[in-house]
Design a protein around this nucleic acid. Structure first.
Length: 418
DNA sequence: TCTGGGGTCCTGCCTCGT
DNA sequence: TCTGACGAGGCAGGACCC
């Protein structure tokens, strides 16, 4: 299977047994940081923090040099800088990450048609049908790693296993720049001693609930009655982790994925109490959502809003429309109506609008609405808020997220409002 | 210390129709 | 006509992922 390499990784040798495997999980190493180094080689070897240096930003990614100081993704940038004062802060360049991601995915698709991208920096590959062409799964994993390094210039880690779940765990353990093969017959031995937290889908809450019952390893899950698991984490997750702990995972590599919702949200640099400004923001976000709906030729049947107050409590409200729409004004009106029904008047740090229950557009709705006219109204409302509340208030925190991921085009006119 | 943004999925509660 | 059981669907909140 694999051996420790003295750096905390578990890696396989070139002649490792890959009997019964078919799934590769490929994960780019510190992807954003790696792309920045690719574009500016003088950054190589430095502790890098990818994130906006001001406002309420969090770390999107960090180089392994920075991670040695305890810097982690999703950590506030200020906290990261205290941990690693020598780190270089690099603003994110999401368009560039998307472009490099496309290059990497193209390599995967040149090897097997069964590629399931999970995000910009990772994917599952099913290689069962291409073994005659490229060799065994272990050989294909080596080929993937060599080609990504040679053709794109960045390193990746690969897990090879019989199932998606085990392949994903294996790639995590092989990072950075490693490969771990788990032959099918070794699946239970591989899983048994691992922490429950290492399972895909078990986060801090679920692992706390399991550990409170003395369930610390995946092997422990196998020994625990189903009813106990269900009480700890709920019936759905309980059933899932029981299956995964037995090495059972029937999920196939899916090359197509249909979006189920489209949304946008913004965190303000300064908490906002002005309800007219918040209404204008909802309208602006609704229009960005609508633009994406129309580009994808979808309509939404449900509109949801999210309001996060200054104490970080978050409320959501949703409403099913009388008829589906992709019109910004309709979505915006629904969002504003939902907002009006929230009585709480505390300062707001975040607003969001999401379109749910998507379906193919019925046609016609687009023509009813004049985009330019709508944008004049949106900008007018924002101008009014500026005049009444001052420019500082309507500056928004920068986008620093990783998850902008696949397909999150922004309306061109959404830029330049800051 | 002070917590982004884009998503999916699940749970519990409630209402409504049968 | 009233009542209770039950399922479907809407809604709110939260956990989790990258």
């Amino acid at each position: 299977m694999g051996r420790g390499d003295g750096r905390g990784r578990l890696v396989s040798t070139d002649d490792a047994d890959d009997t019964g495997t078919r799934i590769l999980h490929v994960d780019m190493d510190a992807f954003y940081a790696a792309v920045e180094v690719l574009d500016d080689p003088s950054l190589a070897g430095l502790p890098l923090i990818i994130g906006a240096p001001d406002g309420r930003s969090v770390v999107s990614s960090a180089s392994y040099e920075a991670r040695r100081y305890g810097v982690r993704a999703a950590m506030p940038v200020g906290q990261a800088m205290r941990l690693c004062p020598s780190a270089r802060i690099v603003p994110p360049h999401f368009d560039r990450y998307q472009a490099v991601s496309r290059e990497v995915m193209a390599i995967f698709e040149s090897i097997t048609p069964l590629v399931e991208p999970l995000s910009v920096d990772e994917a599952f590959l099913d290689v069962l049908g291409v073994r005659r062409l490229w060799g065994s799964p272990g050989a294909i994993a080596r080929l993937v790693r060599e080609r990504v390094q040679a053709e794109v210039g960045i390193s990746c880690s690969v897990g090879v296993a019989a199932t998606k779940h085990v392949a994903k765990m294996a790639s995590t353990m092989a990072k950075p720049d490693g490969m771990l093969i788990v032959p099918a017959a070794a699946t239970l031995d591989f899983l048994g001693p691992r922490s429950v937290r290492a399972m895909w889908g078990v986060g801090p809450k679920a692992s706390d609930a399991l550990e409170a019952r003395g369930i610390r390893t995946i092997g422990d899950i196998r020994q625990t009655p189903q009813a106990t698991l269900d009480r700890a984490v709920g019936a759905a997750l309980g059933a899932r982790i029981a299956e995964l702990a037995r090495g059972e995972d029937s999920r196939a590599v899916e090359t197509e994925r249909i979006e189920k919702s489209i949304g946008h949200e913004e965190t303000f640099d300064i908490d906002v109490s002005d309800r007219e400004f918040l209404r204008a923001e909802l309208l602006r976000l609704a229009d960005r959502v609508a633009v994406r709906l129309r580009r994808a030729e979808w309509e939404c049947a449900t509109v949801a809003i999210k309001i996060r107050f200054d104490d970080f409590t978050t409320v959501t409200r949703s409403q099913t429309l009388t008829e589906p729409t992709s019109v910004g004004q309709r979505i915006g009106e629904a969002a504003q109506s939902l907002y009006e029904n929230i009585d709480r008047r505390d300062p707001v740090r975040l607003v969001g609008v999401r379109a749910e229950k998507l379906r193919p557009a019925g046609g016609g709705a687009f023509a009813l609405w004049d985009d330019d006219e709508h944008w004049r109204k949106v900008e007018g409302a924002l101008d009014d808020a500026r005049a009444r509340f001052g420019n500082a208030t309507i500056t928004r925190a920068r986008h620093v997220g990783r998850g902008a991921g696949r397909g999150s085009p922004q309306h061109p006119k959404a830029h330049g409002v800051d």
